[in-house]
Amino acid sequence: MKHQGKHPGGNLTSRMEFVLLGFAEVPQLQWFLFGLFFVIYMITLLGNGTILVITKVEPALQMPMYFFLGNFSFLEICYVSVTLPRMLVNLGTQRRTISLVACATQMCFILVLGATECFLLAVMAYDRYVAICNPLQYPLVMNHKVYIQLVVASWISGIPVQVGLTFQIFSLSFCASNVINHFFCDISPILKLACGETFTIELMVYVAAVLFVSDPFLLILISYIKIISTVLKLPSATSRAKAFSTCSSHLTVVVLFFGSAIITYLRPEASHSAATDKVLSLFYTVVTPMFNPIIYSLRNKDVIMALRKLLGK
């Protein structure tokens, strides 16, 4: 974290717009990147949209596990739509400016949706824990009212803190440069443009990261320790394989998302670099949402059967 304030050569100014540098350092690849990210966006919308539809219309998937999965797919559509359309416009038109209000709005949505994803993944882990460790109590513990409340809480819990954090960040004055060396309005590259002392804001960011990333990850870790302990005690190898198969998709997504998010937001400030931040951000904002439907489809027999029925119709 930076303890020293920044002292620009000119007067402090409140910027009304920024420039998203994106991938301007590779001008020869602009149209290739446009095509690549366009294809990724279409795959993400189609894949997650399909999962969302089948979890709503397929009778065999009307249970809490797939209700959570449907919400997760909708979340991924929202999440990727906050960054990729703007990136595609910047790559296609080479106009990289973004207003201060639009930049703040983008950051706020990314933070809120990111918090929702962390909580929703924790809720999904808790659902698997109850189903495997307390199967007889599952219908009582995970009744309709409870799983609706868990999903609603996942969507709204991060809003007050993340909106407040965004407001604090954009209440800062910014220095002479208004160039954001990133493809979206992320916290670290924005704070690098701020004038004066930013230690307090960076401390708030770190606390928020612990609250919305580390705590849900810890809950997931505890759930899976108990799940693995229970599964290993099952007498039948078939039962153990079936139990693990219901968790493997979710566990893969958890590793992909939390791995990149924790490295991005909780590693020391001294180890931050623009290139590394871009790669890590691409991973959890673009790549992971694209692979989630594939991961859940390939590792879940119920989803595969529902897809076959939908395609057959």
Rank of each mutant, 00 (worst) to 15 (best):
G5Q: 13
K6A: 13
R15V: 05
R15I: 07
E17N: 05
F18M: 01
V19K: 03
L21F: 00
A24C: 01
E25K: 01
Q28R: 03
L29V: 03
G35D: 00
F38D: 04
I43T: 04
L45A: 07
L52W: 04
L52G: 00
V53A: 05
E58K: 04
P59T: 06
P59Y: 06
A60S: 13
A60G: 11
A60Y: 03
Q62F: 07
Q62E: 11
F67Q: 08
F68Q: 09
L69T: 07
G70S: 08
S73F: 09
L75W: 06
L75I: 06
E76W: 12
T83A: 12
P85E: 11
M87C: 12
L88N: 03
R95I: 04
V101E: 09
A102I: 01
T105M: 13
T105P: 00
M107W: 00
L111F: 12
R128D: 08
V130N: 10
A131R: 15
I132V: 12
I132T: 14
N134M: 13
P135G: 08
L136P: 12
Y138V: 01
L140H: 14
N143G: 06
N143S: 14
N143Q: 09
Y147W: 14
V152Y: 05
W155P: 12
I156H: 06
I156W: 11
G158P: 03
I159D: 06
I159E: 05
P160A: 04
P160C: 09
G164V: 08
L172W: 02
D186F: 04
P189E: 00
I190P: 00
E197D: 13
T200R: 10
I201C: 07
E202L: 10
L203V: 13
V205H: 10
V205A: 06
V205F: 05
V213W: 00
L219R: 13
I220C: 01
L221H: 04
Y224T: 01
Y224F: 09
S229L: 10
R240C: 10
S245D: 11
S245N: 11
S248K: 08
S248Q: 05
V255R: 11
A261N: 10
A261Q: 10
Y265S: 13
P268R: 14
P268W: 12
E269D: 14
A275V: 09
T276E: 11
D277V: 00
L282H: 07
F283M: 13
F283N: 10
F283G: 09
Y284W: 10
P289K: 04
P293C: 06
N300M: 10
V303L: 15
V303Y: 11
A306F: 05
L307R: 07
L307M: 14
L310Y: 15
L310D: 05
K313M: 05
